[in-house]
């Protein structure tokens, strides 16, 4: 395969320079995304997944944020070295984003129709009337009942799910190639979550978009993702196809995450959790960042940082014992704390 991926992140480093020290939010991140593909970036809070999204969008607060190295290639062109005007013209047009909390992400004092129409007016130079018509079409497309009568309504007059649909309408207005969804369903009721995810999936197929789904929810991932990248302490710990990861995790962190999902058939068992907390970004442990919490950690894990290498065909893991974890032939070297 020699085709250029739609979006490729290469050895990205992002830090936050604050008075109390430098926090390394992203430490050598690599992934790629093709058209029509869904990549789920999975991780707990502080793992750097939202910073990744903001860096790609170019909406990271700088300072304190600082891109310390790496490339983000959109169709082979590095967007980090582009001039601001060129970069801005990609934003919302070619690469767009959906935020977690639509209530705060939508402007509270502007009608939703206006906020959607703004995309057409600014980027397509459309007049007020036609842009409004487009906005109504989009509202219908994302499943807002009675769209025509609701273009003039304000965000607070909609339910959570409807608000997220409006957010989606803004994001897909100009048929972007890449859509980044940062925890798009976290703030929603479970029933509404499924509807919104289905809508995203439909739109993706329709427009052949590359979708980056940022989430901490393993349930959401299993349904919609093609590939998963598991992030921890600003690095990808494991990357593979969704079925691979669920069936045969090749990293102890992923294994721990999967084991911490409550299962209805595992009656009576205590829910297992990964002991300890993620490392402080200002004070990374040496070697593998997961070693203080890892049941399989050895001296090698403290001294050497493992690279992201294949454990099997198309299945990458940043663990010294990737093959053993993958095969399930590894035993815990220390008892996990209760």
């Amino acid at each position: 395969m020699t085709t250029t991926p739609l979006l490729e992140v290469k050895d990205l480093h992002v830090e936050f320079r604050t008075k109390s020290g430098v926090a390394q939010a992203i430490n050598g991140l690599n992934f790629s995304l093709n058209a029509g593909e869904t990549l789920a970036i999975l991780g707990e809070s502080g793992s750097g997944k939202s910073v990744t999204a903001q860096t790609i969008m170019g909406i990271l607060d700088m300072p304190p944020g600082h891109i310390a190295g790496g490339q983000i290639l959109y169709r082979g062109e590095d967007i980090l070295t582009m001039n601001e005007t060129k970069r801005r013209k990609l934003r919302g047009v070619n690469i767009s984003m959906i935020f977690q909390d639509a209530l705060s992400a939508l402007n509270p004092v502007l009608p939703v129709g206006w906020q959607i129409a703004e995309m057409f007016r600014v980027h397509r130079g459309m007049k007020r009337g036609p842009a409004k018509k487009k906005a109504i079409e989009l509202m219908q497309r994302v499943g807002i009942p009675g769209a025509e009568g609701r273009v003039g309504d304000y965000p607070h007059q909609f339910s959570g799910g409807m608000r997220q649909r409006i957010m989606i309408a803004i994001a897909i207005a100009l048929d972007p190639d890449v859509l980044i969804a940062d925890e798009p369903t976290t703030a929603l009721d479970v029933t509404v979550q499924a509807q919104v995810m289905r809508l995203l999936k439909e739109l993706q197929v329709e427009n052949n978009m590359g979708l980056i789904l940022i989430t901490h929810d393993l349930g959401v991932v299993a349904d919609v993702a093609d590939k998963i990248a598991v992030m921890y302490a600003g690095r990808v710990m494991e990357a593979a196809d969704v079925y691979e990861i669920y069936a045969k995790p090749a990293h102890p962190y992923t294994k721990g995450l999967l084991e911490s999902i409550p299962r209805i058939d595992a009656e009576g068992d205590r829910l297992s959790a990964i002991p300890g907390l993620p490392p402080s970004l200002t004070d990374m442990p040496s070697g593998c960042p997961f070693n203080p919490r890892c049941p399989y950690a050895t001296d090698l894990c403290v001294s050497d940082r493992p690279e992201l290498l294949p454990a099997a065909e198309g299945h990458y893991s940043a663990c010294h014992y990737r093959e053993d974890v993958y095969q399930g032939t590894i035993e815990p070297r220390q008892e996990a704390q209760a």
């Binding site: 969008m57 170019g58 013209k89 934003r91 919302g92 935020f99 705060s104 509270p108 703004e118 803004i170």
Partner: peptide
Amino acid sequence: QSDYVRTATAKGLKRGRVIGRH
């Protein structure tokens, strides 16, 4: 610093419009 201004930036609006309109 609010989320809706961040959204406005993510919509690819010029800085002047982000500040003025949003």
